[in-house]
Design a binder for these strands. Structure first.
Lengths: 233, 233
DNA sequence: TCAAAACAGTGTTATTAAACACAAATTTAC
DNA sequence: GTAAATTTGTGTTTAATAACACTGTTTTGA
């Protein structure tokens, strides 16, 4: 058995979903072109209007994708956890980035030049289907988000955000504390409201015994009620 | 020269972008499985929660894709003109439809079972890239729409809607009359506001000599100013 | 370690847009 | 051809949420 490179170990273990579709030749191409980069807390990975050059793969940490809008307002569009891929949409669309990505916390990312990904897709239908599937799921999510963010009231939108955080990053061993610690501002940018209103609504949820807040640590006490608020509030 | 079937004529002429990627064998498969269906004004093509079965191709007419939200509110997500494809996202995502599609006016649509499309994609990388490109552009559009609809004020949102209608359906020979005649309600559903507010804002735009309204006929008089309102209003 | 910056929290006011209530005009269906 | 239904238009009220202003607290970085 030939000794595997560190990169190949990482890719084959963590990026199995993509790796397993590849032929030995294609695997060699990926290993050869793959690099790893560490990002500090709040460091920007790529920014709006830049040319998309890399497929990013989050190996460790947490990443937000966001878009700046009118005035100083920002909308967080998607959250990533290991092992998820991002940064490829703009390349496939033939556009500059319309959003930015930044690390929430110290994170490790793998990167693969999009030219390499492009040529692999043209050789490998399973890989093409992987991206078709990912893009399709994201598009459905964005369409749903349009309706949720424009039609729900503040309480419903914040409940949605909290439920998204549970789904995306999960809970600690106590089965109630959110694994992600976000600023009030990020929470507001996720749920399309001002920071003041995010704070006030968190307070309201605390008073209603739906959550317990301790700094940035949020414990989910009554998830069913949060779901009701998401649906009707 | 072999006489071509009517379907093959239609497909090869109107759906050239897709057709030209196919091998003779694949073209035969498409011709064999392709059907045409006419829809009346306001007729529903497919509805939310249904299982996606067909790739739809709009050959003639105008189609809206929309999603119902809280209470009786509806958000129009995308507009289609000939020759555009839709209805495939949910299939690729492995989900039921999250939106509905209906004809704005009497329309002719081609349809191809998604199983056929799926098997063609798995054989044909150019076709896979076609869908990757379409999905990527749509996803960028939805992400941009999220910010526009949540952060712009009513005037900016209605200006956006009018500019979208110009871009999507174009103008009559007079170079100012919109080719699409929409109800005030549809205009409201496109720009995330109540019908009353769509009517009032149209009146405001008329008073400001940006447009001339005659029933459902809208003439664009000052497009640069509409762009300014879209950007800053 | 200490000053500056960023973040969290709260009260007050202003603004936006929805909700509601009708009347008039137009379209649709029998 | 006409009654019913739908669409358009407008005035008024109400609710939601942003904007603003300020204090206290925590974090950061030299």
């Amino acid at each position: 058995m030939i000794k595997k490179s560190t990169f190949e170990q990482i890719i084959s273990q963590d990026m199995a979903e993509m790796w397993n579709t590849l032929t030995p030749d294609q695997k060699r191409i990926v290993t050869k072109n793959f690099t790893i980069q560490n990002f500090k807390k709040n460091q920007i990975i790529y920014a709006e209007k830049e040319a998309p050059e890399m497929l990013w793969c989050l190996l460790k940490g947490k990443v937000k994708m966001y878009k700046s809008g009118i005035g100083d307002r920002v909308q967080i569009l998607r959250l990533y956890r290991p092992v998820q891929y991002f940064g490829y949409r703009a390349y496939f669309a033939g556009e500059p980035y319309v959003s930015s990505a930044a690390a929430f916390e110290p994170s490790t990312l793998g990167m693969l030049p999009m030219e390499v990904v492009d040529s692999l897709i043209r050789q490998n239908n399973d890989l093409a289907m992987f991206f078709i599937h990912e893009l399709s799921r994201n598009l459905g999510g964005s369409d749903t988000k349009i309706v949720n963010l424009t039609q729900k009231h503040i309480r419903g939108r914040l409940a949605d955000a909290l439920l998204l955080l549970i789904e995306n990053y999960g809970l600690e061993d106590d089965d109630s504390t959110l694994k992600i610690y976000m600023s009030r501002e990020d929470l507001a940018n996720l749920s399309n409201m001002t920071t003041s209103n995010a704070i006030r609504t968190l307070t309201a949820f605390t008073n209603e015994k739906l959550i317990i807040v301790d700094g940035r640590k949020i414990k989910i006490i009554n998830e069913p009620q949060l779901r009701k608020i998401s649906k009707f509030g």
